[in-house]
Amino acid sequence: MALAEWALPKRKRTLPQGRRWLTNWGIVVLDAVLVRFVMPILPIGLALYVADNGWGLLNWLAVPSWLSILIAFVLLDFAIWLQHLISHIVPIFWRLHQVHHADRDIDVSTALRFHPIEILLSLLYKFAWIAAIGAPALAVFAFEAVLNAAALFNHANVRLPLKLDRVLRLVLVTPDMHRVHHSVSPVETNSNYGFNLSIWDRMFGTYIAQPDAGHEDMKIGLNAYQSEKPGQLLWSILLPFRNR
């Protein structure tokens, strides 16, 4: 996706790429270290434990394995959509999530720019859904792979042909669809919460097809932080603890 951004960029960058990438990838390193130290268990490991102990809805029902995998995958996708919605409407979670939105450019690195505390809370949330669903390990593995790949895809600053975009977004969240969500406009920020399947935003009325200002002219980030500070690592890590 980084190569695609270089070959077919959608927007001109606001801040220098090198500085932003040092910050965004620095946050990724902090996330990885903290998660490995505090919570070494992985979602797939939990799924295996859940299956061994017969926990969760799908383990209680006589559901064929292929159907169980499909149901779990779709429910986990909905869970992530719901988590994203909650992170916008609950103030304490928004304090953490605004680190992701403060980025004044949106590209492949933005997909991984999440505060370490939000990453830990996200894991706990995902663990609860895996246990409640009784998600098979194969479904969790597939979901994690698809979710991460989809996030890199739909955050990319890449220009897709409009016809291709219209077809893809019938099922999947495209870069143009998700870019609307990173607009400074509150109405647009509170839309298009999906990361993978586009059905949830259409189903719950949070879908906006295009930004009012157009993709090339729309302002990215948060109105309160239109400066070079979101490109700084320490500032980004401390952002949830500021009073504004």
Rank of each mutant, 00 (worst) to 15 (best):
I44S: 04
L58V: 03
G205T: 13
P175K: 07
A209H: 15
I220T: 09
H215Y: 12
L123P: 00
V29G: 12
W55G: 02
I237W: 03
S198H: 05
W235E: 00
Y49L: 02
E118S: 03
F141I: 11
A32T: 10
V74I: 15
R104K: 03
L222D: 11
I41D: 02
L58C: 03
F114N: 06
Q226Y: 06
V173L: 02
A149W: 10
R104D: 01
I69S: 07
V63A: 10
E5L: 12
T174V: 10
A224V: 04
L8M: 15
R159L: 07
R202W: 03
P211E: 06
N192D: 03
P186G: 09
V50F: 01
I106T: 06
E144G: 12
A51Q: 08
P240K: 00
G205Y: 11
E118L: 02
L85H: 13
G54T: 08
D212E: 12
G231A: 15
A142Q: 14
R20G: 13
L239C: 00
D165H: 13
T189L: 07
A32F: 07
S122K: 06
L48I: 07
P161R: 07
Y225K: 05
P43T: 04
N223A: 14
I220Q: 07
G56C: 03
Y49A: 02
I27R: 10
H178R: 04
I130K: 10
V28Y: 11
I130Y: 10
T174W: 07
L8H: 15
A62T: 15
V108R: 05
A79L: 14
D107M: 06
P43K: 04
A209W: 14
I69T: 09
M177I: 02
V33L: 11
D176Y: 09
W21K: 13
A72K: 03
I69N: 10
R179Q: 04
L123C: 02
L233M: 06
A224L: 07
L170S: 10
I237L: 13
H155T: 07
S185G: 00
V90R: 08
R20I: 13
I237R: 01
D217G: 03
R11E: 07
R242A: 00
A128P: 09
L15M: 14
D103N: 12
Y125R: 09
D201F: 01
L164P: 02
I130S: 08
V167K: 07
S122G: 14
V108A: 12
K126I: 04
F141C: 09
W60H: 09
